[in-house]
Design a protein around this nucleic acid. Structure first.
Lengths: 217, 217
DNA sequence: TTATATTACTGACCACCAGTTATTTAAAGA
DNA sequence: TCTTTAAATAACTGGTGGTCAGTAATATAA
């Protein structure tokens, strides 16, 4: 049997955490390189230079890898978003910031749009609870930052975020179709496809929603 | 070799179309029974009682089956939606109709939320063009019905639909998580999960968007 | 220093997948 | 009845997610 690719085993809890973080870092690289649908545990293990079976010591399933990546990326987005906000922003400026910061990591939205329908299945209840609590904390931070930026109450901000997240994910999906620039498409089809602009759809309608919240419905 | 499961071969164009429709009907049954992620060509073939290879005579890939199902379901939804509308509707009534008619077929939204990011990949350009043209026609019909129902211009209706579709798909995803009713969840997690109500999120914010469109931005 | 116990790691294995294809055979036409 | 065409079959290919018997690194006891 050839020498093991892993030259030092993770024995202590710290070493195991480091190993888990290394796997997540490699998972992010692999996801960015091949996309969600082509992501595989064999490909991830190859990138790490160790055996596929080892991955299952640290993650129960492939979806638990995605769930953990989601948490990391939501945390990074929350931080970037807060840094982009300041008190008394115009609604449009706020919405642009939300969209732009979400786009900083190209893998965030593809993960978010699969979170409920794909990723949350096939994970342990424990892992799901941890992820939900993390998401809830991020929401609270988003809401706090939003209250200050838009001069909204906490309740209004939470209301707003419960609309903005679905709208963002829904709008982002329209950007996730296949690359068709080099294809010979009929003009009507090209025009139809181009009529969906995720940024425009999101920011314009997010502003309308903010307007509606301010008006008190 | 046992007698072939297909007792009569599809030779004429009409017979081939019928065969293709039979496959789509069985695909709908299989999708409804097992859900998108567990859907398989082997399972579909088994449900039809013939060989998996036969499916590839009528559909180039698994995703082309989904694409064709999307078209059928969008057409059915468009029809049901138009039937649910009448002139001079309240915005809330219109939005409820949009959500309710989308929910009539439980497989519609799971397909729509995967259309851009998953299904549209791995299909031929020809099939995609046909599907996009069908979708565009449905949109035009949605827009026409919407103009009458809400007393909006055609341009306003198209603007509205380009917001409502992403919002609907985004909101619907929050309902697609795993069934957790029987799980012992901490109260804060349970509360957080329950704070996402797809119908409420969609109708409330769709009304805000309509309001914003009427106000002229 | 040596023996033993523990457990991290390996990679072959299992049961499936999407898609392909060499062969069989149904059926149309001469 | 024979020939031609192509629909249909089911074995095949190359892969997947996840498992697990065996190996070996490493901590601990004697």
């Amino acid at each position: 049997m050839p020498p093991t690719a892993i030259t030092k085993r993770a024995r202590s809890e710290d070493q195991k955490l480091e190993r888990r973080e290394a796997i997540l870092s490699a998972a992010n690289d692999h996801l960015t390189a091949v996309g969600f649908e082509a992501f595989s545990m064999a490909g991830l293990a190859k990138g790490l230079g160790f055996s596929k079976g080892t991955l299952y010591l640290y993650f129960r399933t492939r979806e638990e890898v995605f769930l953990a990546l989601c948490e990391l990326k939501m945390t990074a987005w929350s931080s970037a978003f807060k840094q982009a906000l300041h008190p008394n922003m115009q609604a449009n400026e706020y919405c642009e910031a939300a969209f732009s910061t979400a786009q900083l990591d190209p893998a965030l939205l593809p993960l978010l749009m699969r979170l409920n329908a794909v990723i949350e299945h096939n994970v342990s209840i424990e892992a799901l609870i941890i992820a939900k609590r993390s998401m809830r904390n991020q929401f609270a931070q988003f809401a706090e930052a939003t209250s200050t930026a838009l001069t909204l109450t906490t309740e209004q901000s939470l209301d707003l975020l419960r609309a903005l997240m679905p709208l963002l994910v829904g709008a982002a999906q329209t950007d996730q179709g296949p690359a068709l620039q080099d294809e010979e498409l009929p003009a009507d089809i090209r025009e139809f496809i181009n009529s969906f602009d995720a940024r425009q759809t999101f920011t314009t309608n997010a502003c309308r929603i903010i307007q509606g919240i301010r008006a008190g419905d």
